[in-house]
Design a protein around this nucleic acid. Structure first.
Lengths: 334, 334
DNA sequence: CTGTTAGCGCTTTCAC
DNA sequence: GTGAAAGCGCTAACAG
C-alpha cells in the first residue's frame, strides 16, 4: 500500500504538495499537479481515510439513527439519505433506536464516539430537553419527523396535522358521517397531530369524535386489527375508519374481512404514509403521501450544507402531505 | 476533549497502561485498573476512534453493500446485520449497488477505501471472477445469496433450487396440473435456480413446462403484472401461477383482478421470499420463507468469527427454505 | 505488571 | 507556489 510519502518521492515534491493536490485546497502549479497525479497513478495510491480523519479531525461520515432498520418507511428514508450522501463521498453509519429511550441514547453516543461529523436522527423516545442538551455539544445533527422548539432549523418535518386533516376531509367528502379513528400511540407527537387534524376536519363539518369510535393503536398491523375488533364491538355504527398509518390500516382490513364484511362495501378504510406496499394491497389503499425519501434527501442536504459547507444547497424544513385517493374508500350517496 | 495522555497523568501511570485497561488485552493490577478507571470517569474520557484505528489498523467498521437500501427484503437483512454487529461494538457502513456492475464495484471500492475491516456483500451484477480476484485482496468479505466456487466458505446462501421445488410441489399437492411460471431475470443465479427447482417438481409429477406458460419477469411488481397479462393472453389454460418472488406475485394478483378473475377462485398464486407484506396481502399469500434476517445475522457472525476472532461462533453456510401455506392457493378436487 | 519509545499516514501552520 | 516540521491520539513492540 503506497503512502503519501512514496508519492512525494516519486514525484520529486514534498508531502505537503501531494496533500495539496489531493485536497485541491491550495494553488499548485499545473506542472507539479500533473507530476503528482502521475505518481499517484503509477503507484496506485489510495489515501488512508483514517490517517486523514485523524489529522483533519473530519471523518466524512455521518451517523444515521432510525427507529428500525427494516420497514418500508425507514427504508425509503435511508435510501434517500444514502444516495445523496454517497454522491458527495460521505459515508453513512447506521444504528437502530427501536423507539426506546435507552437504546436511542445509546445509539447517539455510539455514533458520536465513532467520530461522525454529523448525525441524522429519527428519534421518538428521547425528550426535547435531551435534544436541546445535545445541540449544545459539538456534533451537529438534524431531526427527521420531529419539531423541537428553538432548534426548528435542525428539523425536517411533515405537517402531520394537515395530513390528518386531509385524510379525514377526504373521507367526509365521500359522504361519510360516521367515522371511526385508530390512532398511533398518542405519546408520539406525530400520532397526536394526525389525530388533531382528524378532529379539526370533523369539527369543520359539525361532527365530533364519539369516544367509543376511537382507539389508540401501536402503529403496527396488529394494533390495527385490535382496533377494528374493538370498534366493531362498539354499539355505535360507522361506515369508515381512518387509520394513523398504513400498517394499522392493513391490520384493520384483515379484521374487517375476518368478520365477513367487505371493503369498501361495508367499511371504508383510509390510511396514512403511502408506504410501498399500500399500492399492493387489495383494495389498493387510499392514503396520505408522506414523502419520506425526499425528506431523507433533504436531511442529507442539511448536513452537506451546514457541516460540509456546500452552501449552494437550499433546505426546506417542512413538507406538505398530499392525499392519495385509491380504492379503499367508497363514495356514499347523499 | 480529554486525551489518553491526560488520563495517564491524572492516574499517575503511563500511556501504555491506560491503553491496556481500555483494551483489556493485557494484565493490569486491580489497583492500577481502578485508578485509571476513576481518572477516565472524572475526565469524561472518550477514546478517539480515529486515532485508535490509525494506530491499530483496525476500524471496527464493516461495510455492507446491498442492492437497494429500501425494500422489505434488504430491510430485514440489514436489520439482522446491524443488531448483531452493534452488539459487538462494530459499526456498519452502508452502500447501495443497484444491481449494476459499475455501481457495485464502485460501492465495494468505496467501502474498502473507507478502511472497513470486512465487507458483507449482496451483489448480483459483478462476475465470479471479479469476486475471486477480490478475495485475493486484503479485505475479507462474505457473500449473501451467492455461491461462488472455491470460496464457498465465504458464502451464505439459501438453497434456491429446493425453494423453487417446494413452491411448485405445494401447488401440485393441491391438485393443480396446469401451472404457469413467472421467473425473475434468468441471468440472476437465484432466479435461475428457483426456476430449475420448479421444473424438477413438475418432472417428478410427469409434467413439463409449456413454454407459452412461462415468462421472464424482473422481480418487481410491474414484471408480475406484465407476466400475468402475457399468460392470460396465451392460448393455454392454467389454474395456478408460481412466481419467482412475492413482489411479482403481488403484481400478478393485481392483473388477475383487473381482468375480472378471482384469487384463488379462478387462479391460484404462489410466491417466494415471505417478505413482510405478503402477510398483509389479500388473500394472504402462500409463499416460501427466505430467512433473510437470520442469514444477515449469520453473515455478521462470519465477520465476527473470521475477522474479529470470536472463535466460539458457529457459522452455517446454507439455509433451507420452508413452505408457508396461506390463502392464495386453492385446493382442487381430483 | 508497568513504562519508554517509535511510529500509524496524513494535514497544516509557518517559513521561504 | 513549495517545503519543513510538528503534531492528530492512540497502539504495540521492547525493556525492565
Amino acid at each position: 500500500m503506497a503512502t503519501i510519502y512514496q508519492v512525494s518521492e516519486l514525484a520529486g515534491v514534498s508531502l505537503a504538495t501531494v496533500s495539496r493536490v489531493m485536497n485541491k485546497n491550495a494553488r499548485v502549479s499545473e506542472k507539479t499537479t500533473k507530476k503528482v497525479e502521475e505518481a499517484m497513478e503509477t503507484l496506485g495510491y489510495r489515501p488512508n481515510s483514517m490517517a486523514r480523519s485523524l489529522a483533519s479531525n473530519r471523518s466524512n461520515s455521518v451517523g444515521l439513527l432510525v427507529s428500525e432498520v427494516h420497514g418500508p418507511f425507514y427504508g425509503a428514508m435511508m435510501s434517500g439519505i444514502e444516495s445523496e450522501l454517497r454522491a458527495s463521498g460521505m459515508h453513512v453509519i447506521i444504528a437502530a433506536g427501536h423507539s426506546e429511550e435507552a437504546t436511542e441514547k445509546d445509539g447517539i453516543e455510539f455514533l458520536i464516539d465513532r467520530s461522525c461529523d454529523a448525525l441524522i436522527l429519527h428519534v421518538e423516545a428521547v425528550s426535547d430537553e435531551y435534544l436541546l442538551e445535545l445541540s449544545r455539544g459539538r456534533t451537529p445533527f438534524v431531526l427527521i419527523n420531529r419539531d423541537v422548539e428553538s432548534i426548528e432549523d435542525n428539523c425536517i418535518c411533515l405537517d402531520n396535522e394537515l395530513g390528518g386533516y386531509l385524510a379525514t376531509r377526504s373521507v367526509l367528502d365521500q359522504g361519510h358521517t360516521h367515522i371511526a379513528y385508530i390512532s398511533g400511540p398518542l405519546w408520539k407527537k406525530d400520532a397526536k397531530e394526525r389525530y388533531l387534524g382528524h378532529q379539526r376536519a370533523l369539527q369543520e363539518s359539525g361532527l365530533t369524535q364519539s369516544s367509543s369510535l376511537s382507539f389508540e393503536g401501536d402503529f403496527q398491523a396488529e394494533g390495527g386489527s385490535q382496533g377494528m375488533r374493538h370498534l366493531l364491538a362498539s354499539p355505535d355504527a360507522f361506515t369508515a375508519v381512518v387509520c394513523g398509518n398504513d400498517e394499522m390500516a392493513s391490520g384493520a382490513m384483515d379484521e374487517v374481512r375476518d368478520q365477513g364484511l367487505a371493503i369498501p362495501g361495508n367499511i371504508s378504510v383510509q390510511g396514512f404514509d403511502n408506504v410501498g406496499f399500500s399500492n399492493y394491497m387489495f383494495p389498493k389503499l387510499s392514503t396520505v403521501d408522506y414523502p419520506v425519501e425526499a425528506m431523507g434527501v433533504m436531511a442529507a442536504r442539511w448536513v452537506l450544507k451546514n457541516v460540509y459547507n456546500k452552501n449552494d444547497l437550499a433546505v426546506k424544513n417542512v413538507f406538505r402531505p398530499k392525499l392519495i385517493a385509491r380504492d379503499s374508500v367508497k363514495k356514499l350517496p347523499r
